[in-house]
Design a protein around this nucleic acid. Structure first.
Length: 772
RNA sequence: GGGCUCAUAGUCCAGGUCGGUUAUGACGUCGCCCUUACACGGCGAAGAUCCGGGGUUCAAAUCCCCGUGGGCCCA
């Protein structure tokens, strides 16, 4: 009997053909019905956000969600998008062409960015496709398309009209390298080496002095007060006294405030506009008048006197020298300081008062909390990330950015009276180069306007993804059918940004939650357990791995190694060793391909036993698939296929299946059961390894795709795992006995079969060549 | 400083809700074996004071408390 499958091992090259077939047959096409399963797929950012092996694993798993849902009988809408707005591509373009954004004509710069994105996007699509992602590539969207940006702008205009947007001059986080304001969510903290400078401040009309330690001596010119802790007895005699600021000789008052820590430095703290967030709140609380010491160019302003024009770091060095010369320097310590830096440019941020647009969010916190409670999180523990973030929100969301490659803020200002005007929603506007669509100023009737030059924070775009994919305001019928979406899969690190902002915006615009489930994945870590990222240089490129080992191997690794929601370590060798399981599956199938597929048969005890084990496996897999945790089915299927089905059952029934010394009826029972078991394994595995299961399915069972099949349901067969244990113990006993007697496995031996295994006697005898 | 989370063989990981055999499986290592699906295999072996300390209990990897260390997030 020749096996129908002749090749000895799974060849990943076959994946390309299968992919092509899927595309030709359009098997993943979506037509909206009354009930749909919509996935709010994260649109990856080409180049900027890390697109490494962890991300590839992430998208593989998102695809498993889609396939699981499809096999559960759902009508799955799995859109694919590419996120193309934002700073990373601007930095990339500046570097690639050795140009500066602000010194390049805006239109030209945007074109260069677009070209760069096109290249990077092509590679990204290639990776996603070769991973076997079953998304809607034919209609993939871009967040910088006219349609998408028109949506971002329309939603802004709507919120503007509702009074949710306002302009305010506030201390802002400013990234002077990128030349833009950034949101709190875009700040990360890094331990940086710096100098803690102890300075001598004279007390007015006395010859006494106090020591004040600061990491920002260059802000002396912006110092407005000195605070000490009310419990700090060292300074109680100076409270209310005037203190002379060194270098500037300005006079400030010494007062008490609980935020001054007695242990830090000398216990006395200078409050300047603005050294850190604490300064900001103190200025507000004590109603101090701010002094702008650092300008938008990241350099000291004229208030810094002779230090004007220097960068803060240069000014700091010079001031330390000058303090020393004038004998006002006590000492300098080298310390490591937790410094807020821009997540994108990695430079320490400055806090500078600027006029920016804000979207109201503070008053929405309670509503969003409630909405969050209604959403099922997988795993549930990650809901806490959202709740913690909601608790820490204390300012509105600054949404304007002084950048080019983003969605333009659709506002024109009257040249005469500066009144802002927003156009009608529905179109994509570019105020920096287009004429104002409004003819007369509503306030002064003037006809001349000037366009806003700023763009939106990219989360303004990303946060409407559920609205874009559901064709909000573009196709009402479609929208009604697919919104709210079913699930938002995403990574853990952007819960406080993407997930939160989406909740906020969709609630503001639709009054509804954007999805009913959120599926949160952990980070890809390197072999040492550190978070993988491009900037750290520890990222592994997924493409060579996939090309070498095939997508299924990679996907099975991702399912079997990543317990859902937890961080996972990536190791190339580990991925490679996963391939063995696919080989095993292949060879089991190859063996079975020697036998015809039988519709029904009379079953023997062994057959009933393995089918009970199969049923147990079906139940176990269902447990995992129900919560989209692929770790559970992957481990269970591997364990069953390898260590139960192949190791024991197949060995037991091999002779029977060949019909050697067995009746036709007995033979058919074995063949039927072998195929029933394998076809079940293939279906259970289909969402995880779609290629090999498709290939084997078509070779053995059907002309039609396995991905059109419904998932196997449990038949509620009684658990027989105690039999499994006895069988494997008996088999081990025989193997060990033969070994100790130096017998070959095919040699005959005399070993008593235990009473409990009596029903399996004939199979066991033929398996081990047992003598009576 | 606060929060989330983790700690089990050389490596990765299961078990933990609901305490109870000999602590699961994989990778790796070492031995033996070509046995008509598979040497990308089979069989077997070695390898774990379940992070430390205390408590509850007849019984703790599991529950409680206190530490220590890692990762991530926030201030």
């Amino acid at each position: 009997m020749e096996p129908k499958i002749s090749e000895k091992a799974w060849n990943p090259e076959l994946e390309k053909k299968i992919l092509q077939q899927w595309e030709e047959d359009k098997i993943y096409d979506f037509t909206p019905q009354d009930d749909n399963y919509t996935i709010d797929t994260p649109p990856p950012y080409p180049s900027g956000r890390p697109w490494h092996i962890g991300a590839a694993a992430h998208y593989s798993q998102i695809d498993m969600i889609a396939r699981t849902a499809r096999m559960a009988g759902k009508n799955v809408y799995f859109p694919i998008g590419i996120d193309r707005n934002g700073l990373p591509v601007e930095l990339y373009t500046e570097k690639k062409h050795k140009i500066r954004m602000r010194e390049t004509e805006r239109g030209e710069f945007l074109n260069l960015c677009r070209e760069a994105l096109d290249d990077l996007e092509a590679e990204m699509i290639l990776i996603m496709k070769s991973l076997g992602i079953s998304g809607d590539f034919a209609n993939y969207y871009r967040t910088d398309s006219k349609e998408y940006r028109a949506l971002t702008q329309s939603t802004f205009i709507e919120l503007w009209k509702k009074g949710q947007v306002y302009l305010a001059n506030r201390p802002n986080n400013y990234d002077w390298v990128s030349g833009t304001t950034i949101a709190d969510a875009e700040i990360i903290y890094e331990d940086l080496a710096t100098k803690l400078v102890y300075m001598k401040f004279k007390i007015k009309d006395t010859d006494q002095e106090i020591i004040i330690a600061s990491t920002r001596p260059e802000l002396l010119c912006a110092c407005r007060t000195i605070i000490v802790n009310p419990d700090d007895e060292r300074y109680s005699k100076y409270i209310g006294k005037k203190i002379i600021v060194p270098i500037t000789n300005a006079e400030v008052e010494l007062r008490t405030h609980h935020s001054a820590q007695q242990e830090f430095g000398s216990g006395a703290v200078m409050v300047c506009s603005y050294g850190d967030q604490n300064d900001v709140s103190l200025f507000r609380e004590l109603k101090l008048e701010e002094i702008v010491a650092i300008g938008l160019d990241g350099r000291m302003t004229e208030v810094a006197g002779e230090y004007a024009g220097l960068k803060p770091k240069q000014a700091r060095t010079k001031i330390i020298e000058d303090l020393e010369t004038e004998g006002l320097l006590d000492k300098v310590e080298d310390i490591v300081h937790r410094t807020p830096v821009s997540e994108r440019s990695k430079t320490p941020i400055e806090i500078i008062p600027m006029e920016e647009y804000y979207l109201k969010q503070k008053e929405a916190v309670e509503k969003i909390k409630k909405l969050g409670q209604e959403i099922t999180f997988h795993p549930s523990m990650h809901k806490q990330i959202l709740m913690n973030w909601l608790d820490s929100i204390n300012i509105d969301w600054p949404i304007s950015r002084r950048r080019y490659y983003g969605t333009e803020i659709p506002i024109w200002y009257c040249k005469k009276c500066s009144e802002p005007h927003v156009p009608e929603p529905g179109k994509y506007y570019r105020p920096w180069e287009e004429k104002c669509p409004i003819t007369n100023c509503s306030k002064c009737d003037s006809t001349e306007f000037v366009g806003e030059e700023r763009t939106f924070d990219t989360w303004m775009d990303s946060s409407v993804s559920p609205l874009y994919i559901s064709k909000f305001k573009r196709d009402d019928e479609f929208f009604k059918k697919v919104y709210p979406a079913s699930i938002r899969p995403q990574a853990k690190d952007i819960v406080r940004t993407w997930l939160y902002y989406t909740l906020l915006r969709c609630e503001q615009l639709t009054g509804e939650k954007p999805w009913s489930e959120a599926w949160i994945m952990g980070y890809g870590l390197d072999e040492k357990g550190m978070k993988m990222s491009k900037s750290k240089g520890n990222a592994i490129d997924p493409l060579p791995v996939i090309e070498k080992l095939g997508a299924d191997t990679f996907r099975f690794w991702s399912a079997s190694e990543i317990n859902h929601g937890y961080d996972f370590r990536c190791n190339e060798q580990k991925i490679e060793s996963t391939k063995k399981f696919l080989s095993k599956l292949w060879n089991v199938s190859r063996f079975l391909s020697s036998f015809p597929v039988i519709e029904s048969a009379k079953l023997s005890a062994s057959d009933e036993w393995i089918l009970a084990e199969v049923d147990k496996l079906v139940k176990e897999c269902k447990k995992g698939y129900e919560v989209y945790n692929f770790f559970i089915p992957a481990i269970a299927i591997r364990e069953f296929t390898w260590n139960v089905f192949a190791a024991h059952y197949i060995e037991m029934v091999k002779a029977r299946a060949y019909g050697i010394d067995f009746s036709d009826e007995e033979r058919d029972g074995a063949i039927f059961t072998l195929h029933k078991t394998l076809s079940t394994i293939l279906k259970l595995l289909a969402p995880i390894t779609p290629f090999i299961t498709e290939h084997l399915w078509k070779e053995l069972y059907s002309k039609n795709s396995i991905h059109k099949e419904k998932q196997v349901e449990s038949e509620n067969i009684e658990d027989k795992s105690n039999v499994t244990k006895e069988i494997s113990e008996f088999n081990s006993k025989v193997w060990n006995e033969k070994k100790s007697q130096n017998l070959s496995l095919k040699d005959s031996i005399k070993i008593e079969i235990p009473k409990s295994l009596e029903p399996f006697k004939k199979d066991l005898k033929s398996m081990h060549n047992l003598l009576d």
